[in-house]
Amino acid sequence: MKCIKPILLSATLLLGGLASPSLVMADDKPSIVEQGKDIAFKRAKGNCLACHLIIGGESPGNIGPPLVGMKLRFPDKAVLRAQIEDATVKNPYSMMPPFGKHGILSAAEIDKLIEFLYTL
């Protein structure tokens, strides 16, 4: 799987590039924050929108609290990371999936996700 992903990703970028010729291929690699946003929004990835309101995301759920003011509320990145890696440590009944512990997202993906969350 690990080897296939970058290929798929570049294929998507290529198709995206073809569909919108105004984009310059060389500058097309999304920033870390954009990648993090993708991870947060995509159903097959974090799908954080299933439960959290996130500004800019469509049809959010309301099971968890809105993800706003993240940098202010989570000055310590490690605390934010712990919530994402395994929410059941803090709240054993948590409904939030243990993204790190269950390998739903990789450590690198969580890094990017946190960069995105910090912009909220």
Partner: peptide, 22 residues
């Protein structure tokens, strides 16, 4: 499951809430 949900999580604790638009 990998997402770690019980039936009760969705249909007791979160009943009436929205998961995405559902």
């Amino acid at each position: 499951g990998q997402l770690n949900f019980a039936c009760a999580d969705c249909h007791i604790g979160s009943s009436g809430s929205r998961i995405r638009s559902e």
